[in-house]
Computed example of a mutant assay.
Amino acid sequence: MSITRRDALRYAAAASALAGLNAAAAALAPAASAAAPTLIDFAMRQIPAQDIRAAGHSGVINYVSTSRPGSNFGAKPITLPYAKQLTAAGLVIVSNYQYGKPGGTAPSDFTRGFAGGVADARTGWALHTAAGGGKSAPIFFSVDDDIDRQAWNDLALPWFRGINSVIGVQRTGIYAGIRPCQWATADGVIGRSGTPGRVWAWQTRSWSNGQIYPGAVLYQRIIDTASNPGPIVGGIRVDVNDVLAQDCGQWNLHP
């Protein structure tokens, strides 16, 4: 099968964008292969780029939101100097928004309705662009709870519609368990990856019953908890995410 010059350049850019250990090979490998590159996510503090590379990861999923009242997470939000450090080291960046948390000092973001979605999208996009985020890159907005279909319809869906009204569907992604990822796709509130068949769904292992949504671009396979600590990178414990698509929303593919 022949490919156009434009396609060849796109594939080359995708392989380059997944910089890190075996990334070029991973870009050509099946999504679930052991060679798939990984991105880490963390909140406590900024991890030096050289430590991330030394641990064999290809980049980060970093926050474009601020810390909740009473907390002071050093990696929230991502800053322009840190983003430049990561990029200079050949690491990729994906944006995530999460301010509130179940049982936290601020309510879960998805409970704040349409107006809350508007406000969160404005904040997230301002922090994303201030740090140098790609103008067409998505932000993954978090549903960090095991919600049912009624909670999706009554709470989360209006919140996502509010987000869409500010940044558009194509720049909107979701972080959640498998069911909200499926509902978000069916309801048309998240955008599509440049990888065929994939959407802006970052699925967590939590609440997913051992299943992986075929449309997801990222899968949070290792979740750092007190009872099951994540690996240590740069002196802190992190979550680890498998990259399931060449285009997982990384900034440098979406200038």
Rank of each mutant, 00 (worst) to 15 (best):
3 I>D: 08
5 R>C: 09
7 D>K: 13
7 D>L: 14
8 A>D: 08
14 A>L: 11
14 A>N: 07
15 A>M: 09
15 A>N: 01
15 A>E: 07
21 L>Y: 10
25 A>C: 05
25 A>N: 06
29 A>T: 10
29 A>W: 09
35 A>V: 15
40 I>E: 00
42 F>L: 05
42 F>S: 02
43 A>E: 13
45 R>V: 05
45 R>K: 15
50 Q>R: 14
50 Q>M: 03
51 D>L: 05
55 A>C: 02
57 H>I: 00
58 S>F: 01
58 S>R: 01
59 G>A: 06
59 G>R: 00
60 V>C: 08
61 I>D: 00
62 N>L: 12
63 Y>A: 06
70 G>R: 06
71 S>G: 03
76 K>T: 06
82 Y>S: 03
83 A>M: 00
84 K>A: 10
86 L>S: 00
86 L>T: 02
87 T>C: 01
88 A>H: 01
93 I>T: 10
95 S>I: 02
99 Y>S: 02
101 K>F: 13
103 G>W: 04
106 A>M: 09
108 S>Y: 05
108 S>D: 11
115 A>D: 15
115 A>P: 03
120 D>T: 08
126 A>W: 07
126 A>P: 05
126 A>Y: 07
128 H>Y: 06
130 A>H: 01
136 S>I: 04
139 I>V: 14
139 I>D: 02
143 V>K: 01
145 D>V: 10
148 D>P: 13
151 A>D: 14
155 L>T: 07
156 A>S: 14
157 L>N: 12
159 W>T: 08
167 I>S: 02
179 R>D: 15
180 P>K: 05
181 C>K: 03
181 C>N: 06
183 W>Y: 08
185 T>F: 11
190 I>N: 03
190 I>V: 15
193 S>Y: 08
194 G>N: 14
197 G>R: 10
198 R>C: 13
199 V>Q: 13
199 V>W: 13
200 W>Q: 11
203 Q>T: 11
204 T>G: 14
205 R>A: 14
208 S>W: 13
208 S>H: 11
213 Y>K: 08
219 Y>I: 05
221 R>G: 07
221 R>F: 09
222 I>H: 04
232 I>Q: 12
234 G>A: 03
235 G>S: 04
239 D>M: 04
242 D>P: 02
246 Q>Y: 04
252 N>E: 06
252 N>A: 01
253 L>V: 08
255 P>W: 01
255 P>H: 04
